[in-house]
Design a protein around this nucleic acid. Structure first.
Lengths: 117, 117
DNA sequence: CCAACGTTTCAACAATGTTTGAAACAATGG
DNA sequence: CCATTGTTTCAAACATTGTTGAAACGTTGG
């Protein structure tokens, strides 16, 4: 055994694989951890049906929490949790208006909603 | 109170909201459950860093499990689990070659990888 | 047929994510 | 200042996901 090789790999792959620089080459071509982390947090935000519904609804128009709650039938505290996950994923943000909090899509939220739609 | 109205909503939203048909109108404009479910299962597949890394690696070239394992340092059984999540999300599939299983991106997997990259 | 290899499956366990209801907070109107 | 309304926070219960190591499966070569 010489150098970086430890694993046997099938012929059908070996050639292309070595051309690409082997494991080292492929790993180097991967996005950095920060980018991967961003992707993961968006994905997590989208990994629940009610949250997906909410961002689609917000893509129609901004809404206060009371509307979102009325639309989904969820309790305030429950929806508050889901909204916080969407906020952490960078998909929504909120502005205060009097007694109300109005949630709306961020730029990223808009792009994501367009793309998955 | 007349008709569908039960919730007080702030002035800044009311007008636009009623134009869109209120809650009923907005709910009707949402994607159907099947579509939402598909989005969620793709999102879940992407909601772990190692899985995201794997699909990026597979976008460079198909790989047998032993290579993926070597690349990530994960145990076989662990990686096998993550690959099954990616498969359930419809992002990857595999073909057998002799003793090896070679994973590669599906069409959906390719589109997703391109978009998130 | 047997042994070796690549891979998956399984069950127990650990870790994370979600729900619940009560309590707290902030803004408004009286 | 007080009561009310819209919303968040918190901790405890609960549910879903991820990890581990051992055992099983399928394919290959001897």
């Amino acid at each position: 055994m010489e150098g970086t090789k430890e694993t046997e790999i099938p012929d059908s792959i070996r050639c292309e694989f070595e051309e690409k620089g082997g494991i080292v080459g492929i790993v180097e071509s991967l996005p950095d951890d920060q980018t991967i982390g961003d992707i993961v947090s968006v994905a997590r935000a989208l990994s629940d049906p009610v949250r997906v519904r909410v961002i689609f609804a917000l893509s129609v128009q901004p809404m206060c929490v009371c509307l979102i709650v009325a639309m989904t039938g969820y309790a305030y505290s429950k929806m508050s949790y889901h909204l916080s996950v969407l906020k952490e994923g960078g998909l929504v943000c909120a502005r205060q208006e009097g007694n109300y909090l109005i949630y709306y899509l961020t730029d990223l939220g808009r792009r994501v909603t367009l793309w998955i739609g």
